[in-house]
Design a protein around this nucleic acid. Structure first.
Length: 1153
RNA sequence: GCCCAGAUGGCGGAAUUGGUAGACGCGCUAGACUCAAAAUCUUGUAUUCGCAAGGAUGUGCAGGUUCGAUUCCUGUUCUGGGCACCA
């Protein structure tokens, strides 16, 4: 009986389906195992041979684990939202719902064709409203939480509101804008809009503003790689940076935990390294530099505070807000020109640029210690988004700074000493500082600490940890994605309540962008405006009444009747202010009381002082309103770093309003009260009196301090209720899908806690390295947030990650070059690209390639990029298979060029007698994609060779984790092996040949050696060597002509994970009941696999000269004796005595002369 | 430019912990079976010198450590992946 794979595979699939063998239960006595693939994006091109590589690997492992007695969860689904479907819709008018559906159907068939053991009842689709309901729900969890930095965990935002009401944000610095400082009292004076804006700066999912690549002509936002040289890839329209309202995930708040979490997971070191670098934690200092002759100052972040005395210039990012403020008149034009140039460039281009560019602003910064004036430049190599968007440049210690200084002839200060050669920067840290004032003679490390200490003393800087990672942009101005469950009223974002979910994506007919850079959803008026929702059920921002006619509470004893009012806010807020002040007044500190008695009794210079009297949002210790003088006593509480910042912010604001401030410490008050009073008197006499407008004060206070955060748009201004028109990006759905598989049909929660507790972490996650930073970081963050909020019981989603390489396509090019096919630089080759199939080439596209020799020589172009050669096609443009180029010897002489190769062929005319034409060809290995016409469809392979062959061949191609080009040719070998395997059971002439004879020791040895190897290789994902071992076993068993059941039956079980269909058929033929997929994995017996002797390689001076067999338990002395007496060894010894003999038991023997 | 990875016969690759480089397969070579082809089986196949025995060279390139390096270290070239709106 022949190996008829078609009927065998059809029958096996039917049987599995009928018996529902892959159904997985959430209840089992067996230990659980969760093995997951990265789910595919169902593209229109269908599944290509690259997709299944990882899927086959995980399928083999899943089946293996199942046979080893585990309850295995091995699901599959579809990442169905995304840009390509929308792009396709724009081009063809077909709705993404329909195309996605169609594509998924196709993927389904293709996946089933390969014979995977998925439990399809658990399938998820991210574009299904039953699924994205929970994507939206999780988004709301993030929206309603913030990361408590002390606890290092996500906490509901309501607890933050409680805290703000008690103590302000003094212990919770604002992650979105570190300049926001307020205490409880101030918080209460904020309007709802102001409060919400501040809360937005804390939320884990938040709305802000971000720059995007905006193409006016296309009316859309473009991805970085859609922008080439400042114009759109499609159409070549100009692209500019535009600020748009965007949603973000505050992943930066998780930076430290994402780093720490890497220690607990089993990812490859390379993968961890990539994530670490992406997060980019660097420890250094933030330093304030004042601008000379200007009220401005700016902060820089540096990892090398020790090099502070080597600063020769400063560089601001061209987008830095201070640039326009500090640029001098004469530099104005040049700076503008440079900024315009930078605006046209993508971030990628800016980073890639080797050419140095920049522009002097004309301004100088003051060195904080030496007072030296340092020129301030702008340059594109400083990015606005990293650190503070400004750097201090130390040319002698940093390569980029050095090049910049050289390019612009900026004098370089040497603080490194002899190790700096003047030619290039010295970035190492093994030197002693010179020319560095108080850190001279120190090593960089101590110097850094000393500098930071000194900066802290002088309040001009602090130690700082900086992260390269930025918050993740989480909105797209697109249609085909999850709508945000948010409604806007008066510029405040309100979450939908849970019962309003899912917020369904409305059906559209047009996919074009909306007005002002908004997404297509903005075009649907009836969806954007929510007519059935009145503003009543949303707490509206209260209008701000002009209240507080109460000029002076009695107990203050004032008579400033000219003041119209104090607080421009709600009565409620004003009352709480008074309450707060009153409370303060009741409990003066000893020092406060001392001053108060002095001021009150002496009535200094006839001016009245008030104690704990509110000014706008602040309650100073003492204030003289007539002279706008504030006196503060700093208690111990003011040593807190956050408090210092807060005080500073307060002082600055008050200064702008004309208030001056005197600060005294408790000690000063206790030591010398008279001097203090004198100083106050002096200050009062110096000041000019101006009337205070409390109303105005109050307003500026609210505008400047509350508004200091992200200016949020007035969406829904005027009280209408508007929907958010952005949609979520592709990675939203994929950030949590692994949880949904655990309980895919639950309508009450994203996944039942019992289910997530049972399945827990994904034990093995298989996917490509291209997701190293994006998807993996996002899903890790979502998992951590869900864990923090108590929804799941683990905070890392993937216990072990296995990387899979990419299977690339071969793109072939053919071109007719006539009789002199030697391309020179600038030669234009007309070509066609085609896919090589077994029926011959299918021409994809035609075009011209210009060989451009400016960057690399034409020869290296041959050798590296394209593999040129020749081939023959017949008159119908079919390849004549046997003469294809691959045989060409190209490697032995790298100098050999195409000319020699052609000269060596016996080709004489353009077309041979048989009608074959000599043509020129090349091939390139690149990603498989529809647009490159290099997609190989697994269905075609399976139709010809069967799924088992396909599975084993993909595994046989090479190690799972390396990328390799697809090549259909080698598949014959694997197919041959399966036929050979089949014939061990079913002889073509004799039929069924399996006997019940007892096996010989040699046969048992083959079997057990194979079991051991297969198990070990499977465990370490070395599937290519496992397939080899199957081949070796089949060859060896054939050599001994073995057809014994005792050997062949376990072999069927052994091959089941790899080739389940043929195994199922043979399992039946062997007379077994039930399916082989539920059978046990065979065990090997050590007694059949251990050797008792070893054929040792014997080397002289490291070169192997002969082989000698010794028992494994032979003594070293005996072995040395025999080795030295060996004829061949004697010959190489040439009569000399050996210096030593190295003997490694079970490995080798080396005689050293 | 920055981060990560890789480079071994004509080709895909093997060598699991520093110990016989090239397992297994493709392709090719010669042969058996056949009218013939396919299929199957057998033989050889890193390069090079040699009739052979045997020797020399050889894991991108240049060095280093070691009795011994594809494996570890330094430098370098090329290729692939990522670089924040492809998923």
């Amino acid at each position: 009986m022949e190996y008829n794979f078609q009927s065998i595979e059809r029958d096996a699939k039917k049987k599995w389906k009928e018996n529902d063998v892959y159904k997985v239960s959430n209840n089992s006595d067996k230990p659980k195992f969760y093995i997951l693939d990265m789910f595919p994006y169902p593209s229109g091109a269908g599944l290509h041979v690259g997709h299944p590589l990882g899927y086959i690997a995980s399928d083999i492992y899943a089946r293996y684990k199942r046979m080893k007695g585990f309850n295995v969860l091995h699901p599959m689904g579809f990442d169905a939202f995304g840009l390509p479907a929308e792009q396709y819709a724009i081009e063809t008018g077909q709705h993404p719902v329909d195309t996605t559906d169609k594509n998924i159907k196709r993927y389904h068939e293709q996946l089933d064709n390969i014979g995977f053991c998925y439990d399809w009842s658990r399938e998820v689709r991210t574009s299904d409203k039953k699924y994205y309901k929970w994507t939206q729900w999780i988004f709301l969890q993030l929206f309603n939480s913030f990361l408590d930095r002390k606890l290092q965990k996500a906490v509901p935002i309501s607890t933050l509101i409680d805290t703000f009401e008690k103590e302000g944000n003094i212990h919770h610095p604002c992650p979105g804008d570190a300049s926001i400082h307020f205490d409880a009292f101030v918080w209460k004076t904020f309007t709802e809009k102001e409060q919400q804006d501040i809360l937005m700066n804390y939320r884990l999912a938040f709305c802000g503003f971000g720059e995007v690549n905006w193409c006016e002509a296309l009316g859309t936002v473009l991805a970085n790689d859609e922008v080439v040289n400042g114009v759109s890839e499609r159409g070549g329209h100009p692209v500019v940076k535009k600020k748009l309202r965007q949603w973000y995930l505050r992943i930066t708040e998780y930076a430290d935990r994402l780093l720490q979490g890497l220690e607990t997971v089993d990812f490859s070191e390379a993968m961890k390294e990539m994530q670490r670098n992406w997060i980019g934690k660097s420890v250094g200092a933030q330093i304030m530099f004042k601008v000379h002759n200007s009220p401005y100052s700016f902060e820089v972040f540096t990892t090398r505070p020790d090099t502070i005395f080597g600063v020769d210039f400063m560089v601001l990012a061209p987008e830095h807000e201070l640039v326009t403020e500090i640029t001098t008149a004469e530099q104005q034009a040049k700076v503008q020109e440079y900024i315009t140039f930078v605006k046209s460039r993508s971030e990628r281009e800016r980073m890639q640029e080797k050419k140095i560019s920049g522009c002097f602003t004309g301004a100088y910064a003051i060195h904080p210690f030496s007072g030296k004036e340092i020129p301030v430049w702008i340059s594109e190599y400083v990015l606005a988004g990293y650190g503070t968007g400004a750097i201090m440049a130390v040319p002698c210690g940093d390569e980029r700074d050095h090049k910049f200084a050289q390019h612009f002839n900026i004098p370089i200060t040497n603080i490194i000493g002899e190790k700096y050669n003047g030619e290039e920067a010295y970035a190492e840290k093994d030197f002693t500082l010179v020319n560095s004032d108080f850190i001279n003679g120190l090593a960089p490390k101590e110097a850094g600490t000393k500098v930071i200490d000194k900066m802290l003393d002088e309040k001009i800087g602090e130690a700082k940890v900086n992260f390269k990672m930025r918050d993740a942009a989480f909105s797209r101005q697109r249609y085909w994605g999850e709508p945000f469950p948010i409604k806007w009223v008066n510029g405040i974002a309100y979450p939908l309540s849970e019962h309003e979910l899912p917020l369904e994506l409305p059906h559209v007919d047009k996919y074009g962008p909306g007005p002002d850079g908004e997404g297509p959803l903005a075009n649907i008026e009836e969806w954007v405006n929510i007519p059935d929702l009145t503003s009543d059920n949303i707490k509206k921002d209260s209008a701000i009444p002009d209240l507080t006619p109460n000029p002076s509470p009695l107990e203050r004893g004032t008579n400033d009747s000219q003041t119209s009012g104090y607080i421009n806010s709600s009565v409620e807020e004003w009352r709480s202010t008074i309450q707060f002040a009153k409370q303060n007044r009741k409990e003066p500190t000893t020092e406060e009381d001392k001053i108060w008695q002095a001021l009150r009794n002496r009535n200094v210079d006839g001016f009245k002082f008030r104690r704990q009297h509110p000014i706008a949002g602040f309650i100073p210790d003492f204030v003289c309103l007539e002279k706008k003088l504030i006196v503060e006593i700093d208690g111990g509480y003011h040593n807190d770093h956050e408090q210092i910042k807060f005080d500073k912010a307060r002082e600055e604001w008050l200064a702008e309003q004309g208030f001056s401030m005197l600060r005294f410490t408790n000690e000063e008050v206790n030591q010398d009260l008279n001097t203090i009073i004198d100083r106050i008197a002096k200050e009062l006499s110096l000041k000019i009196t101006e009337p205070i407008n409390h109303n105005e004060l109050n307003q500026t206070f609210h505008e400047e301090l509350a508004g200091a955060g992200t200016p949020l748009p007035g969406r829904g201004a005027g009280g209408e209720v508007k929907r958010e028109t952005n949609t979520m990006p592709g990675y939203a759905g994929s950030s949590w899908y692994f949880l949904r598989y655990m309980d895919p049909n639950n309508e009450h929660t994203f996944a039942d806690r019992a289910a997530t507790d049972y399945w827990n972490q994904v034990d093995i996650y298989i996917g490509g390295t291209e997701h190293a930073v994006g998807h993996l970081l996002y899903s890790r963050m979502w998992t951590k947030a869900l864990y923090d909020l108590g929804h799941i019981g683990f905070d890392e989603p993937f216990k072990k990650l296995v990387n899979q390489g990419m299977i690339q396509g071969q793109s072939y090019y053919i071109g007719t070059l006539g009789l002199n096919p030697i391309p020179q630089n600038d030669t234009i080759i007309s070509y066609s690209s085609f896919t090589q199939t077994t029926d011959g080439p299918i021409i994809g596209k035609t075009g011209n390639i210009t060989l451009n020799g400016t960057d690399r020589s034409i020869n290296s172009y041959y050798n590296s990029r394209l593999k040129y050669g020749y081939m023959f096609v017949d008159s119908k443009n079919r390849l004549t298979k046997s003469k294809f180029i691959e045989q060409l010897k190209f490697g032995d002489n790298k100098e050999e060029n195409i000319e020699t190769i052609i000269a060596n062929t016996n080709w004489e005319s353009n077309r041979t007698e048989s009608g074959e034409e000599f043509i020129y060809c090349g091939s390139e290995v690149e990603k498989m994609s529809k647009s490159k016409y290099n997609v190989v469809n697994p269905d075609d392979i399976i139709a010809q060779y069967g799924a088992d062959t396909f599975r084993m061949y993909e595994m046989f191609l090479g190690p799972l984790d390396v990328s390799k080009p697809w090549d259909t040719k080698g598949i014959e070998g694997v197919h041959r092996f399966l036929r050979k395997f089949w014939r061990m059971y079913n002889d073509e002439q004799k039929g069924w040949v399996v006997s019940d004879e007892a096996p010989t020791e040699a046969e048992l040895k083959i079997l057990h050696k194979t079991i051991k190897k297969i198990e070990q290789d499977t465990e370490r994902f070395s599937f290519n060597t496992a397939v080899s071992q199957f081949m070796i076993a089949a060859n060896e068993l054939n050599d001994v002509n073995c057809h014994k059941r005792a050997i062949l039956e376990p072999l069927v079980q052994l091959i089941t994970p790899y080739a389940p269909h043929i195994a199922e058929e043979l399992w039946q033929q062997l007379g077994n009941q039930g399916s082989v997929v539920a059978a046990a994995f065979p065990q090997w017996d050590e007694k059949h696999t251990t050797e008792n002797s070893k054929l040792y390689p014997v080397a002289v001076n490291g070169k192997t000269r002969t082989e000698l067999e010794f028992a494994l338990d032979a003594s070293q002395a005996d072995i040395e004796q025999i080795v030295l007496n060996n004829e061949i060894v004697q010959k190489w010894l040439e009569g000399k005595a050996p210096k030593k003999i190295i003997f490694v038991k079970g490995k080798m023997i080396n005689v050293v002369i």
